[in-house]
């Protein structure tokens, strides 16, 4: 009973966020939500199927560009679904390599996809707009436009694109978490974990290892694609630079510091990695240690970068199972 009450309060509070918070927080929140969805996908791949991938940014980009291209031509909801499927297809196409190549080779081979992707996004100007990028058509659902054009006002707060997208983000994150949890506990999820622990054992138990690995790659890419769509919507305009190696590394960091294999952990890692630099920047004016930009010394930007590096090192050394491990440990004590 009290659990349901708690959940209801959380839902109400989350739904009320756009009424209280400034655009900066909504924007940061939307980026974090997009990262959560994509990170869940990578967590399934790395933590559960045991396949290290540095190509995640590539699949996120497929989702983002796929939506931007299709939403001009078909209804946005269909474009969203199609973009997710497209990312899944891209993942399936890469899975022959993923199936053959293992462990660290896979991780570094997938790095190649990010660079190939950058090359394609820069050169396929007809679809991606090249370095100029493309404008992302606003989302709409059964005639309800996710823009500020209708002049909707809720409790005295004008509802623009950010406020409306906030709810879309909440729904997508909830669906992703729910599906991820179920997948981990389902038969396929346990089969994947067996594949991770020992391919030989899996094969002797009648698990089709190659097929399961391919499926894991496909599902993970679809998550990436959905995250990409939300990211594109939050941006309004996407450019190739947003989907480079750094983003791939960020995703891997999210999953590892969140605790590989934990859906909730990946979400926590995503929030940490995405929001930390933005929030540090936000408060840089009130942190006394930091030098004025342009005056030499350690500025907010460098400080946030250093903190990011230090956080990675600290989590890995002192909280081996990531953020998810910390929570579980506490639960066990209580």
């Amino acid at each position: 009973m009290s659990r349901w009450l708690g959940a209801a309060v959380v839902v109400v509070l989350l739904a009320a966020v756009p009424i209280w918070f400034e655009a900066f927080w909504l924007q940061t929140g939307l980026f974090a939500m997009a990262a959560i969805i994509a990170a869940i996908g990578l967590s399934i791949l790395v933590g559960i199927a045991g396949q290290l991938s540095l190509a995640h940014a590539f699949f996120v980009a497929i989702g983002a560009y796929g939506y931007a291209y299709l939403a001009d031509r078909i209804p946005p909801l269909l474009a969203l679904v199609a973009a997710v499927l497209l990312a899944g297809v891209a993942g399936a196409l890469f899975s022959p390599i993923a199936g053959r190549v293992r462990g660290i080779y896979l991780g570094l081979a997938s790095l190649g996809l990010v660079f190939l992707g950058q090359h394609i996004f820069q050169n396929a100007t007809g679809i991606t707009g090249g370095y100029r990028g493309v404008a992302v058509p606003p989302f709409s659902l059964f005639g309800f436009e996710f823009t500020g054009a209708d002049g909707l006002v809720v409790l005295g707060v004008p509802y623009g694109p950010l406020e409306k997208l906030w709810y879309l983000g909440l729904v997508l994150v909830a669906l992703s978490l729910w599906y991820g949890h179920n997948l981990v506990r389902s038969r396929p999820g346990r089969a994947l974990a067996t594949v991770r622990d020992s391919e030989v054992a899996a094969a002797t138990n009648g698990i089709d290892v190659v097929r399961y690995k391919a499926a894991a790659f496909t599902v993970s890419s679809m998550y990436a694609g959905l995250g990409g769509v939300l990211m594109a919507l939050a941006f309004g305009r996407i450019v190739p630079e947003s989907f480079g190696l750094l983003l791939s590394i960020d995703f891997l960091v999210m999953v590892v510091i969140g605790g590989a294999g934990s859906v909730g952990g990946a979400a926590a890692g995503a929030v940490f990695v995405t929001a930390l630099p933005l929030i540090l920047n936000h408060y840089s004016g009130s942190l006394p240690l930091l030098a004025e930009p342009g005056s030499g010394g350690v500025g907010a930007a460098e400080f946030s970068r250093l903190l990011y590096g230090a956080a990675i090192v600290a989590v890995l050394l002192f909280a081996r199972d990531g953020l998810a491990g910390l929570v579980h440990r506490k639960e066990r004590v209580v």
């Binding site: 590989a260 970068r305 590096g309 990675i312 090192v313 050394l317």
Partner: peptide, 27 residues
């Protein structure tokens, strides 16, 4: 750093060196 968690899996160790890289390269 590495010696403390020598037995960790490949991914964790790789990310740990990445954290070090960010620190050193930024400075």
């Amino acid at each position: 750093l590495i010696r403390r968690i020598r037995r960790a899996d490949l991914g964790t160790l790789a990310i740990l060196t990445l954290g070090v890289d960010i620190l050193l390269a930024t400075e």
